[in-house]
């Protein structure tokens, strides 16, 4: 009952479980990545882009980029904001 054959099959069983867990974990990471990509792509379909805001602010702080106010814009109306999904923070 506790011969070498049993030990062998029990060993395989644990290894398979670990492998299965690894596969599931990898799948979850891929799914999360894809989900985040799709979420951002869905938001950006409305004519705006998520950017690396901390990097932008750092470069503005050291003077490599500018805070010069643009012309030709207005505060978005409620209708514009709602229609384009811009009420969602990137």
């Amino acid at each position: 009952m506790y011969g070498p054959r049993h030990l062998y099959s029990r060993h395989i069983h644990e290894r398979e479980l670990r492998f299965l867990a690894l596969v599931l974990l990898t799948g979850c990471v891929i799914a999360l990545q894809l989900g985040e990509g799709l979420r951002l792509a869905g938001l950006q379909g409305a004519g705006w882009r998520a950017i690396d805001l901390p990097a932008l602010e750092r470069r503005i702080d050291v003077g490599n980029l500018s805070e010069h106010e643009a012309v030709w814009y207005h505060e978005a109306t409620r209708q514009e904001t709602h229609a384009t999904g811009a009420e969602q923070r990137p």
Binding site: W72, Y73, E75, A76, T81
Partner: peptide
């Protein structure tokens, strides 16, 4: 949170705070 609408080009991007227009 205030979104703005860019009037410069025909895209008319509506841009939420902390984001860029399509031009980046």
């Amino acid at each position: 949170m205030t979104a703005v609408t860019c009037e410069l080009c025909p895209r008319g991007c509506v841009i939420p705070e902390g984001a860029a227009g399509d031009c980046r």
